[in-house]
Amino acid sequence: MGIISSSIARKVAMALSGLFLVLFLGQHFTINLTSTFSPETFNEISHFMGTNFLVQAILQPVLIFGVIFHFVMGFILEIRNRSARKINYVRYDGNANSTWVSRNMIYSGVAILAFLGLHFYDFWFPEIVHKYIESNPADATRYYGELVEKFESPVRTGLYVLAFVFLALHLFHGFASSFQSVGFNNKYATALKKFAKFYAIAIPAGFVFIALFHHFNH
């Protein structure tokens, strides 16, 4: 109830869910990066993640909830912010008070949400079908081939690259501002914000590299 009624609580909840997703993003990138230099390692890690009870029964549902919560809270905040700006439209100057990225977080968020739909369609749903609907036997060597297959199409690869560009834009403002939202303001705050901006560029760029690597080397 407090999250719905309190503006500060909503921003803190939004920031905390965002930080949680950023941690997952780094972990996901690390696993995927192994596919560019060691298919065996990628298969081993993917098989572990896909069969471990803790990951599948606890961490995966928490992650899905975190994604849904973050985007729902983002839409709520955007609607309330737009309503507030309409009331104070005479004194509000978006260009003077904020960056283009911060004013358009909702659009980059929608683009990322669309990408997640594609990503679920490409990987999560086939995984559910393979394991629980078709009840196929465990195969620890199938993950690398399935990953490479998704990047054979130049159109699909291009969509992934475009999505990572939007992800970088979203992270560039969102990751850095999340520290301020949770009240983190000490001597390490400046260094953390610099790291957040570096992370916002480096991780999406890394995902772009992975997509292009598999597209041109399949």
Rank of each mutant, 00 (worst) to 15 (best):
H170Y: 07
I58W: 15
L147F: 03
S102Q: 12
F209C: 01
L212Q: 01
Y92E: 15
L63V: 11
I87Q: 14
H215V: 02
E44N: 10
E44S: 09
H47E: 11
I133C: 03
A200Q: 01
M1D: 15
V129A: 13
N43R: 12
A9D: 14
W100A: 07
H70Q: 05
F175A: 07
Q56T: 12
K11G: 00
A163Q: 01
I79Y: 13
S153F: 01
A196G: 01
R156Y: 13
A138R: 09
I3P: 11
A189N: 13
I4H: 09
I68Y: 03
M49H: 11
A15L: 05
V62I: 13
F29H: 04
R103C: 08
L171W: 02
G206K: 03
Y160S: 06
F53I: 12
L113S: 15
G145Y: 07
A205P: 04
Y107T: 02
G206W: 03
W124P: 02
S178G: 06
A176L: 04
A163G: 14
T30I: 12
A191Q: 11
N97Y: 13
V22L: 14
T141W: 02
E149I: 11
K11N: 11
I45V: 15
H130Q: 13
F115K: 03
K11E: 12
F175C: 03
V110Q: 00
S102P: 00
S135F: 10
E127G: 09
F166Y: 13
A196D: 02
L19E: 09
F65K: 02
V148Y: 05
L54G: 03
E127I: 00
L116R: 02
Y92D: 15
T41N: 08
V12R: 15
Q27K: 06
V148Q: 08
F151P: 00
S135P: 00
V90G: 01
I87E: 15
K187A: 10
G74Q: 04
A202Y: 03
G50C: 10
H218V: 10
S178K: 02
Y143P: 08
